[in-house]
Amino acid sequence: MTTPLITLEDAHSRLSLAPGLGGAIANWQLLESGQPLLRHADASALAAGTPRRLGCYPLAPWSNRIGNGGFALPDGWLTLEPNTTNDPLPIHGSAWQQPWEVLEQADGRVRLGLESREPFAYRAEQEFRLAAGCLEISLKTTHLDERPIWHGLGLHPYFPRTPATRLLAHAESAWLCGADKLPTAQVGLPPAWDFAEGAALPEELVDNGFSGWSGTCSILQPDLGYRLACSARGCDTFLLFCPQDQPFFCFEPVTHPVNAHHLQGRPGLRLLAAGETLEITWRMAVMPLTSR
């Protein structure tokens, strides 16, 4: 299967988008060396036809898993079915499983859009801006359903991982999970999960949320000769996914913890009425590691 791509370039990097595959980023790489800044998607990854094999995809109208078969609305219940074959819970919303349209393309900028009816009516937009080695992604949803419904947003980038990769990110707490990967308790940071001063990624599996995030992080790649200085607006939570024995990890800026629809106070979620909008922005700037 051939996947049509849209390409943006600046003086330092090239960005390839796959609107038809969930509005995903296929690749982002340095021009001079070809070094991938996100997990590289080769021809077989593109042919697989899923954003989960690509560099980054949008999470809307929620992030990660929701338990209990759905969630409560102010006036009833929204039933949700599993939306993948390998997970018993609905995960990551519906935007990543639908083709997006190109709404606008100009120098250094592309805007994509999606009109969704599942699991309720909403409009999503992404805008990508690339300049001077900095990629900025804005993601927003506008609620179109007659019923007010809870919304959450996030992005799911995959980053290269080597034995030397380090993460610099400050958070106040972490969420422990049960066998179903839903949170069971919010705790202070275990030492192996404290990245406030910069630390190597854990060797064991991590698939957990972190709250009280400052909104900034740095991904240090000494083996690859660069770092990414990242910042988010509209997010105070991140999800960290470190699968074992894989050459990638995920640092996901999100508005809410996993299963927030069933947590006390629904942290990070927004109850939107028809016409109301929720938006986040994520910036990643590449620079030589020596400039830290």
Score class of each variant (00 low, 15 high):
residue 3 T to M: 14
residue 10 D to Y: 04
residue 11 A to V: 04
residue 12 H to Q: 14
residue 18 A to K: 06
residue 19 P to A: 15
residue 22 G to K: 04
residue 23 G to F: 02
residue 25 I to R: 09
residue 27 N to I: 14
residue 28 W to R: 13
residue 30 L to E: 07
residue 33 S to Q: 13
residue 34 G to I: 05
residue 35 Q to C: 04
residue 36 P to M: 01
residue 37 L to K: 10
residue 38 L to M: 13
residue 38 L to C: 12
residue 40 H to A: 15
residue 44 S to I: 01
residue 45 A to V: 02
residue 46 L to V: 07
residue 49 G to A: 12
residue 49 G to Y: 10
residue 51 P to N: 09
residue 52 R to S: 00
residue 60 A to R: 06
residue 60 A to K: 07
residue 68 N to I: 08
residue 68 N to D: 14
residue 72 A to P: 10
residue 78 L to E: 08
residue 89 L to Q: 10
residue 91 I to F: 03
residue 98 Q to V: 00
residue 99 P to M: 15
residue 102 V to H: 03
residue 102 V to L: 10
residue 119 P to W: 09
residue 127 E to S: 13
residue 130 L to V: 12
residue 133 G to R: 12
residue 134 C to Q: 11
residue 134 C to F: 05
residue 136 E to H: 10
residue 136 E to A: 14
residue 138 S to C: 02
residue 139 L to D: 05
residue 142 T to R: 10
residue 143 H to P: 11
residue 145 D to H: 12
residue 145 D to C: 08
residue 151 H to Q: 09
residue 152 G to H: 05
residue 154 G to D: 14
residue 154 G to R: 09
residue 160 P to L: 00
residue 161 R to E: 03
residue 163 P to W: 06
residue 165 T to V: 05
residue 165 T to P: 00
residue 166 R to S: 05
residue 167 L to T: 00
residue 168 L to I: 11
residue 176 L to S: 06
residue 179 A to T: 13
residue 182 L to P: 05
residue 185 A to E: 13
residue 191 P to H: 06
residue 191 P to S: 08
residue 201 L to I: 00
residue 203 E to L: 14
residue 206 V to W: 06
residue 207 D to E: 07
residue 210 F to R: 12
residue 211 S to P: 06
residue 214 S to N: 10
residue 216 T to P: 12
residue 220 L to I: 09
residue 221 Q to K: 02
residue 222 P to G: 07
residue 225 G to W: 00
residue 228 L to Q: 13
residue 230 C to G: 14
residue 231 S to Y: 13
residue 237 T to F: 08
residue 237 T to H: 11
residue 239 L to S: 01
residue 244 Q to V: 00
residue 244 Q to I: 01
residue 245 D to T: 12
residue 248 F to Y: 12
residue 248 F to A: 09
residue 250 C to D: 02
residue 256 H to L: 15
residue 257 P to N: 14
residue 258 V to C: 08
residue 260 A to D: 01
residue 261 H to C: 07
residue 261 H to I: 03
residue 263 L to K: 08
residue 264 Q to K: 14
residue 266 R to Y: 01
residue 267 P to M: 10
residue 269 L to Q: 12
residue 270 R to T: 10
residue 270 R to N: 03
residue 274 A to S: 15
residue 281 T to E: 13
residue 283 R to E: 08
residue 290 T to W: 01
residue 290 T to N: 06
residue 292 R to G: 11
